[in-house]
Design a protein around this nucleic acid. Sequence first.
DNA 1: GTCTATAGGCTGATAGAC
DNA 2: GTCTATCAGCCTATAGAC
Lengths: 217, 217
Amino acid sequence: MTAPPVSTSPEPSASSAHAILDAAEQLFAAHGFTAVPIKEVAAKAGVNVALIYYYHDSKEALYRHVIERFVGELVRRVSAQLDAAPDAEQAIRAVTRAQFEMLSSKPHFPKLIVRELVDYQAAHAVGVLRELGASLFRRLAGIIREGQARGTFRPDLDPNFAAFSTIAQLPYFFIARPALGVLALGDARPFDDSTAVDFARHAGDFAVAALRPTSTG
Amino acid sequence: MTAPPVSTSPEPSASSAHAILDAAEQLFAAHGFTAVPIKEVAAKAGVNVALIYYYHDSKEALYRHVIERFVGELVRRVSAQLDAAPDAEQAIRAVTRAQFEMLSSKPHFPKLIVRELVDYQAAHAVGVLRELGASLFRRLAGIIREGQARGTFRPDLDPNFAAFSTIAQLPYFFIARPALGVLALGDARPFDDSTAVDFARHAGDFAVAALRPTSTG
DNA sequence: GTCTATAGGCTGATAGAC
DNA sequence: GTCTATCAGCCTATAGAC
């Protein structure tokens, strides 16, 4: 999870390349693409501005590379969790758990994703989103559909919609987190980490509860 | 809902003031605060740049005024829907319905809200968010808590969390909408309006299903 | 209230030395 | 690979005429 020690003989530069991507990822997530001058990326990465243009054709290309890198990691992590789930209900919980691990280990991820979604019209990451969709979203929807066929899940919910309602909870929680203290408590203090842990468990519970057949019908 | 005809005798300027706010609202939502030059706001509003500084102290002040205006309207609309709901289950559906009406009548709203949330740390709208929280979120959580006390809702879910899971669905749907076609269908074409109507109904169903007691426990 | 004209700073990007 | 030096353009904001 931490940056691995890089081979020091032929390409002593690879660490700079990583540093640039890391700095850009954090800054773009925190303040947005246009709000961050490359000068600032360079400063945070501890390199010169010109070096960024050595690795990337333009500021926008840098942004695209950042998006591609982190969406790739997101796909890998969640896929691994899904592979290990024994049944449909466990799979639902596995998805929210994987989301939580991802979001809390890299707290700026949801911001980046959401910024990308909001700016989508103008945007960069279509190919990368297609990959994300194929490997994750459709897989989750398929699991729900299967559960419905076997009778463990209620049949009246649309599987695509249910999948979306399931995955929407945690990203939106992390985005809204700074405002949540105000919303729920009338207080400016943001929720602490244990609240996030609790909400992650809740998100699994909520989705499973929605998918189970009801007594009242 | 449309701009009301303004008194034309003493202040013929009020229409310019409105035009500026309208233009800024749309542009900031579509492209973000830093990405939009005031020059562009002026052009879209059909006025001169200097006039914007006549009404607003700075670009950031203009942004704050935009946020305050539309959050006020959001609060008013959702409150009205909640007032009319006869019972807890209807109230849940009323919230998602009000969200849907708001979001589809002003499609750029969720973008603005989310941008504001993402940029929150640096941010502007604390007071306005507190108002939103008091009148809407806590009211919804209270309704859920009441339903639990009466036995119509399952008691094991946290009322605040359940309220959040409920309201997260629709904003996130509208934000992710341009990507949804890709996610679900592997196709770049975005969902049409009837899909949004269907999802709004689903969001109510999903939340109510999650809150009802289950047969399996 | 509304405009024209303009200042001054910062930004993305490149050329070229090492 | 990495840096120094530099430019042209755009951006926020103001002064002042009408």
